[in-house]
Design a protein around this nucleic acid. Sequence first.
RNA 1: GGGCGGUUAGCUCAGUUGGUAGAGCACCGGCUUUACACGCCGGGUGUCACAGGUUCGAGCCCUGUACCGCCCACCA
Length: 864
Amino acid sequence: MSSPVDRSFPIALPEKPALEGLEQKWNARWEEQQTYQFDRSRPRADVYSIDTPPPTVSGSLHIGHVFSYTHTDVIARFQRMRGKSVFYPMGWDDNGLPTERRVQNYYGVRCDPSLPYDPSFQPPDTPPKQPISISRPNFVELCGRLTTEDEKVFEGLFRHVGLSVDWKLTYATIAPNAQRVSQAGFLRLLKRGLAYQHEAPTLWDVDFKTAVAQAELEDREQPGAYHRIRFARPDGSAIEIDTTRPELIPACVALVAHPDDERYKPLFGTEVVTPLFGVRVPIRAHALADPEKGTGIAMICTFGDLTDVIWWRELSLPVRAVIQANGTLKPLTWGSAGWETDDAVRAQAAYEQLVNLPASKARTKIVELLRESTDLLGEPRPITHPVKFFEKGDRPLEIITSRQWFIKTMEFRETLLERGRQMQWHPEFMRHRFENWVNGLAGDWCISRQRFFGVPIPVWYPVGPDGNADYSKPLCPAETRLPIDPSTDAPEGYVEAQRGKPGGFVGDPDIMDTWATSSLTPQIAGGWIDDPDLFARVFPMDLRPQGHDIIRTWLFTTVLRAHLEHDSLPWTNAAINGWVLDPDRKKMSKSKGNVVTPIGLLEEFGSDGVRYWAANVRPGGDPAFDPRDPGQIKIGRRLSIKILNAARFALLQSEPRGTITESLDRGMLTALDKLIGEVTEHLDAYDYARGLERAETFFWAFCDDYLELVKGRRYGDFGSDAAASANSAILVALDTLLRLFAPYLPFVTEEVWSWWRPGSVHRSSWPSSTDVLSPIGGRDEAALAVRLATQDGLAEVRRLKSLLKKPTKAVIARAVLPSRFAGLQPAARDFQAATHIRDLSFGDVDEAQLEFAEEGPAPGAAGV
RNA sequence: GGGCGGUUAGCUCAGUUGGUAGAGCACCGGCUUUACACGCCGGGUGUCACAGGUUCGAGCCCUGUACCGCCCACCA
């Protein structure tokens, strides 16, 4: 790097510097110069790699994206300036339900996997009222088309914000290489017995008609009602139970009470008969039954909730499932096997009124029937209770038995907790969220989804002579064939014509959970399968930035996959960002209508202003943001403008230059050395907010105090050498400050840099002690003290002048300052010039004594 | 029920090993001051949520409580 006092690069200053247009100007230049290109020739030790969160491509970016991606970008820019080759890719999560839903609505189509591919299909210009059914490949094509459009918009916004991503390193979770990685990861786990399939009761969304995982659940408070229902005993007496789901009475397989409950102890082992359906069910004992709840005895159905699943499994109860995949009650014949009843005619008559109704409607209907049969005691008592929903779903989850694929997690819980402890968390307390989740895991990870747009489960099953598929013997493709789609590709040793035929094969119809692919983002971005050389240079990565809401999904599953596949952490640091909240401290969401889109703010206040706001929030903080009162964004804009103007001022008067001899100059550079240390330390600790705060505080004092104090000297009041000292010091300071601000305010710093320095500030080196101390031959503690005393003295005189309502330029003929300010004497010339004091002395006074001149020029003050 | 974070000026928030409570915004007053009026200077009486404890000394450490937010568990 060239010295700041070298004159080889000409200074070219604009007449009236402004922030407007800097984004377009510099983004074009950065793209042309490939300023943020990753240098893959560097060894792992010289690389800083980032596992960038791939935003979900299903609509538009909001202010929260700008917020969190800015944090990452600050770190990326800092590491780049520290000399690292920064691997900063961008991914698009365009795989999964949100995309499917958007495509359905946008084009007015529905996927019907039974249809053949139609190469000529084009969606109509406007979506029809009645959705058009199309094949899976056609549907996937439309997903690809729409996400490509969305991704262009996303990239444009991220570039506008100034993310220093290497845009050649983009990936998409639905793209072939991501599918290859995802499928290879699955097949390797399958080979090692870590992925398995299992037929079991599974959480099920009746609208999406798919299984969902524990991590995708959320509770919602829903209105409901307790219904007191009578179950008859053989002796004619009755047992009363409370239920919120009377429509599941046909699915009842037992009643259950606590083993120590004296009221029911005598009844354990006896039978009762279900109302309306006349099914004999046993009364059983289980510790999970709560004597305090309802009547203390509950109905076990297959399946009303997860507790039913536990009871059913642990008490070895039969299955009598009535809810089918679409959430309605399935047709069935009472009296047939598994549906034995004391009165099949009556049961069938009752059930006919419920069949094919969705659960909520069936509930209303069965209440009528129970009321008629007098089995409903009293009226339903309304309550509000938490009900489990798929986080993206609209109706309560059901529990449906189906064949699903799982990845083993339960047996690794202890190891995963240890992995969590090996990782650096920023902020540290976010670690608890991870541990909390791991400790609360209830089962292995269900990864299969009965959806269409995603990475297919890459296996087939042989079809026996009887025409039935044998799920116990999945047929796996060779890894070199990946990615494959078992619905259109045939397994090795078979031909397509054998699909579905006896002696042939069938493809697994399911796709993987989006997290099953996203959990491999370090492997996808890093070239695990396709580019081992690259992978060795970037993995394990340095940083995973992400939100705390997806610790249980993305973070957890990524740690799991890296552990299973590489026996390592996926990255060494997890930086967890908070959420941007609305002014009422509520999370922004589309349904609340409080989502703030960033583009208007970026255009009005400039990207640097918005970045300043983002970087000002401490790590993990949840800032409240009111778009009507842009607060910190305006401050960021003001800071950026100040940098433009201060730099212009510094560079307007850059001659003469020479040795830095004056106390204030030497003290300022000594303080700057301390600042470099602090900002570096904070950024190293991922505390971008504190780093910015320190730099900002220094900079405002630099402008308002230091530059004001040395202004006269720069104009030559005290001779050429004294002016040269100031000019040289200012150039060192400007050069340093621009580099300290560069990670935060990339546009304005680059603009100023371009006025007088070669290359890009973002490719310059991070400031060091040497940069600021070598021009003054090391730290000058005495000068530092002079600087402090002078600043205090300046504040004191300013205060008194303001108190006395004197103009700033009012001349003070004589001033006696309290002796505590005497430390400023080595800088008395500068001090007097800035305060317009002609005759300065120090004495034993409590407050400065100022004697104002009637009129006349200030001593040596230029331009006054 | 378990866990995590927060509570400091009207508002948004800093406050790093305990040592005289801070910034910005807003508000008020002053200043055409040759880098910047998108500017500059000045103006702060706050039960640091509450109660107790440790300490010479607590916004900071300990115990408890309240309220706000989030995560998890429960869900008959």
